[in-house]
């Protein structure tokens, strides 16, 4: 069963053939495998940007698909399949970040920790570092909008946020990244 590209206006992610989703819901593992193949790259990229580590992104991606498989029976098609799947991946990543946070706090009691700043960053590294330095509530909307090109409506559904909040957070994220990358310009702007 091929995954059919069904472009919808403004949507950066494609939607699967409903028959494939139906078959996967009915327990057809080859149909689910089609979905895994179709979406794993996007899910992995999302997870990578959220958890900021490739090995963790591997794990979280797997967790997301395992959870999706388990909850597929509850998917009734009210939202797009991509939105539903991204929402699960986002939840898995946030769970992982919280777990990592708890572990880190324990560690911090013993050892002072401070992430090192890149010494001579190439431009792309600088941007990546800046994005990764954002708190998760700003990073997630920025990823969905800027990396995945989703409309605010879909991003809001994935993050369970009103569109207006998505809009203001994306703006704040962009300003924060700009400030990290352009400290001199920031000072100049502040002086105006």
């Amino acid at each position: 069963m091929p995954i059919v590209h069904q472009p919808v206006e403004d949507d950066a992610l494609f939607e699967p053939d409903p028959a494939v989703v139906r078959a996967a819901r009915a327990g057809d593992s080859s149909a689910f495998e089609e979905l895994v193949r179709a979406y794993q790259a996007d899910v992995w990229r999302l997870c990578l940007h959220l958890v900021r580590n490739e090995a963790l992104a591997d794990d979280v991606t797997q967790d997301a698909f395992v959870r999706a498989f388990r909850f597929l029976k509850r998917y009734r098609g009210e939202s797009k399949f991509s939105t539903w799947l991204f929402s699960i991946a986002h939840n898995c990543a946030v769970d992982e970040i919280r777990r990592a946070g708890r572990r880190r706090r324990t560690q911090e009691l013993l050892h002072a920790q401070r992430p090192a700043e890149p010494q001579d960053p190439a431009a792309s590294m600088e941007i990546r570092y800046a994005i990764e330095s954002l708190p998760i509530d700003l990073r997630a909307p920025m990823l969905l909008i800027d990396i995945f090109g989703l409309p605010y409506r879909e991003a809001g559904r994935i993050l369970k946020l009103p569109e207006g909040t998505v809009k203001s957070r994306v703006h704040r994220a962009r300003v924060s990244v700009a400030e990290m990358l352009e400290p001199k310009q920031k000072r100049a702007n502040d002086e105006i």
Binding site: S29, F32, V36, R37, Q40, T61, F65
Partner: peptide
């Protein structure tokens, strides 16, 4: 992007 299909299907 890594190909995780096999690991995912194994875990499923």
């Amino acid at each position: 992007v890594p190909d995780l299909t096999r690991s995912i299907m194994d875990r499923v």
